[in-house]
Design a protein around this nucleic acid. Sequence first.
DNA 1: AGATCTCCGACCCCGCTGGTAGGATTGACG
DNA 2: CGTCAATCCTACCAGCGGGGTCGGAGATCT
Lengths: 165, 165
Amino acid sequence: MIFTTKAEYGVRLLVELGRHGADQPVSLKALAEAEELPLAYLERIVALLKKADLVDSTRGAHGGYRLTRDPADLTMDEVIVALEGTVAPMNCFVDDSDSPRVLCSHQADSGQGCATKLLWMRVQGGVMEKLQQTTLAELVAFAERETPSRPGRATAETAAVASAR
Amino acid sequence: MIFTTKAEYGVRLLVELGRHGADQPVSLKALAEAEELPLAYLERIVALLKKADLVDSTRGAHGGYRLTRDPADLTMDEVIVALEGTVAPMNCFVDDSDSPRVLCSHQADSGQGCATKLLWMRVQGGVMEKLQQTTLAELVAFAERETPSRPGRATAETAAVASAR
DNA sequence: AGATCTCCGACCCCGCTGGTAGGATTGACG
DNA sequence: CGTCAATCCTACCAGCGGGGTCGGAGATCT
């Protein structure tokens, strides 16, 4: 398994946020109910998103969370990094701020790294590529198509909301 | 982290096998020492490779393991699947024999899957693509370039050295 | 004041990873 | 034939990180 539930819940949370307008904040409780996720756990997850400035919060009654950015400008690589830390295919994989290296166990990185280095680099590249290509807006649109929101609200309208911003 | 040490050790083991000729089997002990990996643990790993027919074994004295195939024809997707089971970006990801689906927690797969489905599918695709593009032969060549075997001996002769012991 | 919210730290259970131990079989060689 | 060197197989175990809960403290609206 690559990602943990932190990534999944975090993304689902963002998608849900994307479906609402960015005008008013949405409370975590509402988000948790909408996605049927444990509230207490979501608190810790959304904290990660906030620390990465992908989301901002207003406290107190009628408070909640909002996206800080247009969903079309929010790519998944930022999201996943914010949630999971580094995207590493292997524990010996160190993403030393835009210069990934592979220092393998046992041989204390004599500069070369072991035979698997080439493979892990490629895999990580493949993942990052896909993450960078995927925007939150796409996921929102996808979710909209799958589950055209609760009440009779026109799907077209909702999509318009998403694309309009 | 995507892969566990099973994948890493397994690949390193195959690379080491690839460096020797396929004429004579190499004992696990020799492989373990060459890669500085725990022998007992390697036993369990190589068993997975054998079950997938990527390797065959001869028992008894002077026995060991050999590749069943030309390294150039052995792609990493087979290897990783043999070692790790399914390559799934998420635990809700089910690779139902060449028809991957995403059945998300909580909503017992009403056919649609949750908002993150699109993302996980892409990521998995990215990983598989890279794995399929990478052959064992490449990794062997890479390792050969990084660590041109112990002494200054020519590569062709390295097999002779190994078989000599 | 009181109802909602966000925030924050401590705690906890459990499955899996990574590894060990020990023995049973099988084959080559003297 | 006995012995040594291998593969095989099963059981066991410690540690840790994932996934979650709890309780409370600080904002902020009505």
